[in-house]
């Protein structure tokens, strides 16, 4: 079952760039200079890689957040990183800097991370619940600010902001892919480096503390790492919901092993899930569906189905 899934996924990953609105015959594809060649290497391939890397970051980020907060509802967006990015994108669009909106999105995400950890540093004790609540409060604040942005914007600007919140995997060339690949590598390396201590976090704060682990430092390091990686991802694609919530849960139900043994799988299948969602988005209708819509449409019913299966 697991091997079959892996095999199917690898096939899907390899086949994904060949599907799209334009058919790409193999013979023309390998000839440089043709339109097909350009579409494949400048649009399709980067797009599949972007989907894979972003899906991987969101899914692994979700797994880490759920363990650090010991809360199965946490997602990489729980602390408000995505809302920060969205608000700053809106500001960029309204201020007439829409060409720089990815940079603004990244700044918004990072500012959120900095504000969060500055507040966390003022807590007397380590208190993940309080951090979670600060994140939720920040999200609400950003939502309100985004409403103001909508109110002040023209119709055209509103539409642009709206499109960002729906997520998009449009990409040309490999510049962003290299950056995202590096960020993914760093995130995987960070979590993998702390995997032994991460396993202790699967128990409780007290138990991990008694094994000599600096739970506060470890948790903040992991949350910081994930938030930066998610910030980079969101600045390129906009917030794509649900991946970070459901993929870790699906993998746990499927593999029936503890979360520390699902690090690579989380990244890989999170990536596969977004590649698959993007395939659906690109091929279903006349024009591309927003990716965030597809992940939720596919993910939510499947997630509920899994929860029902578990109960019986």
């Amino acid at each position: 079952m697991k091997k079959l899934l892996l095999l199917t996924s690898l096939l899907l990953l390899a086949a994904a760039p060949f599907f799209g609105q334009i058919d790409l015959p193999l013979d023309k594809l390998l000839q440089s200079g043709t339109m097909e060649h350009q579409v494949f290497f400048e649009l399709r391939l980067p797009r599949v890689l972007l989907a894979f890397l972003v899906g991987g970051i969101l899914s692994l980020g979700g797994l880490v957040f759920q363990v650090v907060f010991r809360n199965p509802m946490s997602t990489p967006f729980t602390l408000g990183v995505a809302s920060g990015a969205t608000l700053f994108t809106a500001i960029a669009i309204i201020a007439g800097f829409s060409t720089f909106s990815p940079l603004f999105a990244f700044l918004g995400a990072m500012l959120t991370v900095i504000v969060l950890f500055a507040i966390a540093a003022r807590f007397q004790n380590y208190d993940p619940t309080a951090l979670l609540l600060v994140g939720i409060a920040l999200s609400f604040f950003y939502s309100a600010a985004l409403m103001v942005a909508f109110y002040l914007s023209t119709l055209q600007e509103s539409y642009e902001i709206m499109r960002f919140t729906m997520g998009s995997l449009d990409v040309v060339g490999f510049n962003n892919i290299w950056l995202l690949g590096m960020v993914s590598g760093l995130l995987l390396g960070l979590v993998y480096h702390y995997r032994k201590a991460f396993q202790a976090l699967l128990t409780s704060y007290e138990f991990a503390f008694l094994q000599g682990i600096h739970v506060k430092k470890l948790s903040y390091t992991l949350l910081f790492g994930v938030s930066v990686a998610v910030g980079v991802a969101v600045s390129m694609t906009g917030p794509i919901g649900f991946v970070g919530l459901i993929i870790p849960h699906i993998l746990k139900t499927l593999y029936r092993v503890s979360a520390d043994k699902l690090l690579w799988q989380s990244f890989f299948y999170g990536g596969i899930f977004l590649v698959l969602s993007d395939l659906i988005a690109r091929n279903l209708g006349e024009s591309d569906l927003p990716i965030g819509v597809v992940t939720s449409f596919v993910g939510a019913p499947f997630f509920i189905y899994l929860l029902l299966q578990r109960k019986s």
Binding site: R70, Q199, L201, L202, T203, S204, F207, S258, A259
Partner: peptide
């Protein structure tokens, strides 16, 4: 107190 549903006794 154990958060993870699949952490085994041996792993714990």
């Amino acid at each position: 107190e154990v958060f993870d549903s699949y952490l085994s006794v041996a792993e714990f």
